[in-house]
Computed example of a mutant assay.
Amino acid sequence: MHAHHRHHDHDHAHGHGSATRTFAIATLVNLAYTALEAGYGFATNSLALLSDALHNLGDVLGLGLAWGAARIARRPPTARHTYGWRRATLLSPLANAIVLVAFAGALAWEAVRRFAQPPEVPAVPVMAVAAIGIAVNLGAAWLVHGGGHQRDLNRRGAFLHLMADAAVSLAAVLAGAGMLWLGWAWLDPAMGALVAAVVAVGSFGLLRESFDAAMDAVPRGIDRAEVEAFLRGQPGVRAVHHLHIWSLGAGEVAMTAHLVRPDPGDHDAFIDRLNHALDARFGINHPTLQIEHGQGCEHDRHVRAPHGGH
């Protein structure tokens, strides 16, 4: 047998340091705006502003979790935690999504309660504060996105929430305009219900994807069958066993596989070429490949036998 692992280093320390600064700035800016919006919400008794402030507070907590996860992910591997703490960037979105789902339910309940007798709300402060929120959330989303981080679930979760915040703030401006010009007081609780719906829809996708990542599912965007077919198609490879693909966090994808390759040859050179190809084609940058010289994998046959198939 011949095993080889390749660690594809993208200057992780620098990348995580940049992510930490980004989350710090976005968190602090959004926390300041949340305090401003909540203050005006209480002063005007506006559920639209209070719901948006609570929504922003949920995202501030999410950004704080992402910030903390980015810092923890910088810790080097140890004898006990051999992969380091990168998976913190997978657990952070999961916790964020759970908090937001709970928040959506509470907000929807309050909105329904207020529909029976909507309070009078001054529209101009609602419009002004919500307009500030559009600028704050778009600016923070631009910082978090950063470019080139499409595979970072931690950043993408924060980015999607900030964009949802900007959309909700825009809806609050429109609701304020409706209350000002048309006298529709029901728009205020309707805005609260809209925020609850936006949060519920947005957080469900993040909850599902972050749960999959925490359970070592194959990352979205990677087709396991396609990877297996690619490996089977390599020169001299007779079979592929024990193929596992999972996310380590922050755009790092790991893979293990046993390749049955009985023909003699330069297996080191073969594995090096294959590792580069896996990274370029699938984004798998932490592959561990084991070459087997026999015709099959005895352990794999024992595992498959009770089920009668592959």
Rank of each mutant, 00 (worst) to 15 (best):
S46P: 08
L47E: 04
A48W: 12
L49Q: 07
L50F: 12
A53P: 03
L54V: 14
H55D: 03
H55R: 02
H55F: 06
N56M: 09
G58Y: 08
G58Q: 11
D59S: 07
D59Y: 07
V60F: 09
V60A: 00
L61R: 03
L61Q: 05
G62S: 14
G62F: 14
L63C: 11
G64R: 05
L65R: 13
L65M: 15
W67T: 03
W67Q: 01
G68K: 10
G68I: 10
G68Q: 10
A69Y: 06
A69W: 07
A70N: 00
A70P: 03
A70T: 01
R71T: 05
R71D: 00
R71Y: 13
R71L: 13
I72T: 12
I72V: 13
R75C: 07
R75T: 11
P77K: 02
T78Y: 13
T78I: 09
T78L: 08
A79R: 14
A79E: 14
R80S: 13
Y83E: 07
W85G: 00
W85R: 13
R86A: 15
A88I: 02
T89A: 10
T89Q: 10
S92D: 05
L94G: 04
A95S: 13
A95D: 09
A95H: 10
A95Q: 04
A95M: 15
N96V: 14
A97S: 12
A97N: 03
I98R: 11
L100N: 06
A102V: 12
A102D: 07
A104I: 00
A104V: 03
A106P: 07
A106T: 09
